[in-house]
Nucleic acid binder design. Structure first.
Lengths: 201, 201, 201, 201
DNA sequence: AATGAATGAGGTTTCATTCAT
DNA sequence: TATGAATGAAACCTCATTCAT
């Protein structure tokens, strides 16, 4: 895979994060990457293919940064859970709280009318939910709860984060996300308390 | 306000809910409304103005249906809270869980690059949050908590709903939203329990 | 059907006759018709649709001029047959023997890769063959031959004419077509002689 | 002449036979020949030059297969004439009756706007006509007819074949060509009969 | 000889908006 | 009001050809 291709992906990824798929024009990309008019189709067969490549690019980064480095580390599950929020908040603080979550953004823009995007994005949210579920399982272990319980909690937490980012993007204010993260922690604390108390009994 | 103008708004609202602002073409609207191509600019000065009118239209409906009829009714706050979820879930079930929330959709598409849309949408979420806050205040009354507490919870709940709708739209499966609603209720229950117990003391 | 649409068809028909489908560019058409850039798609949904409209236009003219006015007239079949050649030769003389037959041209350019064009063109050749068959049937009537005999002769004559036009276009010399027409008449004379002699017996 | 050059010609010939000159893209050729994108201009100065080389390639094959092996053999002229049709029909049967005659195809596509192609193609048809004329001269020998008579017949036969192939390509049905070949033989039989009877007298 | 990146003109198509009637 | 024609910038994409290595 050539260097230029990667360069295009990176430049375009920033544009697409900020402007969405449709509103990112190929000419914008080529201008930003300082490439000639005909170059784009040397590296991508279509704008759609680029969009998917960008999604893969974001997925890879996110997977490494959050799923592997944070949620799969050997630390205490509570610490991992908190670290996830720190990482997410840090990211959006760097973006002035304006861009939102690429996955959420694209889910809203593309899911209804593009099945390929929809499936890829579904995988992102599924992986996230599953990883969080494992973290929650560990939080209450050795107590065992019906497996679907932690899975449902995990989905609720992912929803809170995505919704929190959405509100933050609209308000262009990071504190919105910070507050929603607090609420998410409370929900998890509730859950843990309920189940560890039960376990102790 | 003429009849035709309202007709355009209603037809366009459905399109914009499903396809977003940019992907809704004026010609699509006029085709769907069975109006001549020149009609549009008699009623709207630009596509942008139509977009805002549609947003107002959605706001008015939503305000009446949810804010007034449900959240401002004289019923028990818990019942109102549950009724809100029922109403939301009913709406999305009718849409085959595919369209998502117009406000969330437009927030993601427009907030970063269109300040007017951003402000209007911000108002929607602010009103919602404020109304919910009052419901939560009533749930724990006569206990008094620091005002910001219920406000933060309300924001968390709005985030959960928006995030739940986002995940639902991506999965095209209403059960996602149903589950997230459950989690939201749990969070509120936790809150209420914590504060009413304290209050009793 | 608007005037401009017809104007575009006529301008484009001349270009497509001379340059073929692919080599006729929409910008050429708009230049020739003195229309602005965006006009084309007001009248046609695609270049392909225009191509088919042009084909219909040529078909209508050809059908009226040759099939109806000449081959369906009440005259003696031999006279009709000769008149057909005169009409065809006259047409190509006016074109300096350069353009060839639109139907033959498009058959060669489009048949293999465009089923819609192929079918429309097939209809042209089928109608022509059928009309000629009837003329031949009349030439030898009241003698009856197996029906397929005159049909096969008719197909052979159509082939000669199309091939004659092809050679003429390549040589840019009308005399090629004139000679091939002579040969075609000889073939028909042979046929008539063989069957009327038999009939006399 | 290098090996690769010949390889390009052969691959491109097949493409150009099926798709014509304009619709055969250099990148298609290089893909099909499994060569790098920069290779083309080492072997050809332009697409135009390649087109002419392909024409020469087809001409050489055709000349050997039909003009020399068949029409110039030492056999009886009637047998040679029939063998020519067998060879042609065999060729098109192998092509599923879809491609048509390269020479006819290119004559229609190129003659009007490319004088070099036109001349080369004219030579093909002239050679063919001349060779057929000799065959016909031999059929009626020792009877002598005015030389132009057999020449005109020959041109008529070439026209029939090209027209028959054109109709066959449009119908995608080999039986069209088979029938036209029958009609061509009838025309020649007529001619021979007329002149040998005269000659016997 | 060989590779694939680079160029850039130009192709079809889209669309918000304006104009003429 | 109402109609649809007109405009033209700009979108995505194609492709013959040239360049750098």
């Amino acid at each position: 895979m050539s260097n230029k291709r990667q360069q295009i992906i990176e430049v375009a990824a920033a544009l697409m994060h900020s402007k969405g798929y449709e509103n990112t024009k190929i000419s914008d990309i080529l201008d930003a990457a300082q490439l000639g008019k005909g170059q784009f189709y040397h590296y991508f067969s279509s704008k759609h293919e680029l969009g998917l490549a960008i999604l893969d690019h974001f997925f890879a980064n996110w997977n490494r940064r959050l799923m592997e480095n944070v949620l799969s580390s050997q630390q205490d599950p509570k610490i991992k859970f908190d670290a996830m929020f720190e990482s997410i908040i840090e990211l959006h603080r760097n973006n002035q709280a304006k861009c939102g979550c690429v996955f959420g953004n694209l889910a809203i823009e593309m899911s209804e009318h593009d099945e390929i995007f929809r499936k890829k994005l579904e995988a992102v949210f599924d992986i996230w939910t599953e990883k969080l579920k494992q973290v929650f399982d560990n939080m209450i272990s050795p107590v065992q709860v019906e497996s679907s319980e932690t899975g449902k909690l995990a989905q609720g937490i992912v929803a809170m984060i995505e919704g929190g980012i959405l509100l933050m993007k609209n308000k262009q204010d990071i504190s919105t996300l910070v507050n929603v993260a607090e609420q998410a922690k409370i929900l998890v604390d509730c859950f843990v308390q309920r189940h560890t108390l039960l376990g102790v009994r």
